Computed example of a mutant assay.
Amino acid sequence: MNAIDKAVSSDITLGHLLDVLAVAPDAPLVFTYDGNPIRPGYHVTEVKAGQFSALDCGANPEAWSEIFVQLWDIDEDGRTHMPAGKFSAIIRKVSDHVRLEPSAKLTFEVSDGVRPMALYCAATPRLDAGTYLVNLQARPASCKPRDRWLAEEQAKSACCGPSDSASKCCP
């Protein structure tokens, strides 16, 4: 198994993204995906929220909230990258009309208008030389029962290193 096989989702939430961006609202917000930065004229073309109910491959019921932010990767009118505060204002405007759960899973849909839209999850933004950088990684398919099992195994291995008698973790 390679490292990606062992990865358990570390999606950030919309609330976490907005909290981080509030620290420096004038900083340019640059998303990177497929190894490249988004072009300076990008648009937030749609923000949508969904409540999902499903049955996973282990016949376990699943339910979650998810927010999709659609980015159109274009360069027009000699623009610069959108300031973090403008991105946050767009989200606030959407929240006036659509219920956006701050703790919802956050998914980015990105296309340049030519290639098909692709789904990405976001890493925590980092402020680097006055610019917010948000790395987007392709959202892989996953098996939720396997993901839960991996999380349990990781918790056990983190807990059960060399044991001492005072440890409440391991017998």
Rank of each mutant, 00 (worst) to 15 (best):
A3V: 09
A84C: 01
K93G: 11
N135W: 11
F108L: 06
S65V: 01
D112C: 10
A118N: 10
C57E: 09
I4Y: 14
K93Q: 10
D73M: 03
P83W: 06
N2I: 07
K156M: 14
P145K: 05
P61R: 12
L106T: 03
G85W: 02
L127C: 08
V134W: 01
S163Q: 13
Y42F: 11
A7Q: 14
V47R: 00
S95D: 15
K168A: 11
A138I: 11
C160G: 02
T13A: 06
D96V: 02
M117Q: 13
P145G: 04
A122Q: 00
S157R: 15
D147L: 13
P162W: 12
D77S: 11
T13N: 02
H81M: 02
L150F: 09
Y132A: 00
D96S: 11
S103T: 14
W64L: 06
D112R: 07
L14Q: 06
S157T: 15
F108T: 03
A27S: 11
L71N: 00
E153Q: 15
S53F: 11
F87V: 00
N135P: 00
F108N: 02
A24L: 03
Y42P: 06
C170S: 06
N60L: 08
S167R: 07
C169M: 08
G58V: 12
A3P: 00
V94H: 04
S111G: 03
F31Q: 06
R148L: 12
F108V: 06
P28Q: 05
F52I: 10
K105S: 05
V134N: 00
A155F: 13
S167T: 10
